[in-house]
Every structure is written in structure tokens, then in C-alpha cells.
Simulated scan of single mutants.
Amino acid sequence: MHALTCADCSNGPGTGFRTLSDGLFECHAGHLLTPQDVDLDGQHVWAVEPSGPAHWGTPPAPPAPWTY
């Protein structure tokens, strides 16, 4: 997973979004992002760590069906 970073801030440490209690994401500079604003292609998803940081990445592949 990769940190979901703010496009308005420079890349690097401290530019990631954290999750607020109202479900919005906020960077260290106060820029806000809604879950609907996260525009990823169909192969990627976003997720939030229990401690708050938001990330994006490729979900794990589903298990193969059983064959006999």
C-alpha cells in the first residue's frame, strides 16, 4: 500500500492524509479530501489504517476456486 498524499503539498514525509472523525481526509496543511474525491482506476482501492493514515494500492487476489 502507498500513502495517499496531497496533490497541493510537496511529496514526501508529512504530505499524507489522515482520517478525521467525520470521514474526511486531511493533510498536515489542512487540505480536505472526501472519499468521493479519491479517484483511482478500477484496479486500485483505498484503505485506512486503524491509527488514521490513508493508503491506496492493489487489493489481494481472491483465492482460486477449488478444483478436483
Rank of each mutant, 00 (worst) to 15 (best):
P50R: 13
P13D: 14
G12T: 05
V45R: 07
E49R: 12
G23M: 02
A61P: 14
F25G: 03
A64H: 07
F17C: 10
A7Q: 09
C6Q: 09
H2D: 15
L4T: 02
W66C: 00
M1V: 10
G57K: 10
A54T: 07
S21E: 12
A54M: 11
S51Y: 03
T15N: 08
G57D: 08
L33V: 11
D8E: 13
T19L: 10
V48R: 14
T58A: 02
H2A: 15
D37M: 12
Y68L: 00
G52P: 09
H31N: 05
Q36R: 03
L4N: 07
A29D: 13
P13S: 04
P35I: 09
P53I: 14
T15R: 10
T67Y: 00
Q43F: 11
T15E: 12
Y68H: 01
G14A: 03
A54C: 07
A61T: 14
T19D: 01
Q43E: 14
D37P: 11
N11F: 08
P62H: 06
A54N: 09
G30Q: 10
A64G: 15
Q36T: 02
T19V: 08
H28E: 14
G14W: 05
G16S: 06
E49H: 11
W66I: 00
P50I: 05
T19N: 02
G52F: 13
T5F: 01
V38P: 03
E49A: 07
H2L: 14
A29I: 04
P65D: 13
G14M: 04
M1H: 07
G57F: 04
A3V: 06
T19C: 04
T5D: 01
D39V: 06
P62R: 08
D8W: 03
P13H: 03
A47L: 05
S21H: 03
A3E: 08
P65C: 09
G30V: 07
M1Q: 11
T5E: 11
S51A: 04
F17A: 04
R18E: 10
L33I: 09
H31A: 03
L20Q: 10
P62W: 08
H44D: 06
P50V: 08
G12K: 03
L24P: 00
L24G: 01
T58P: 00
W56P: 09
E26Q: 15
P50E: 10
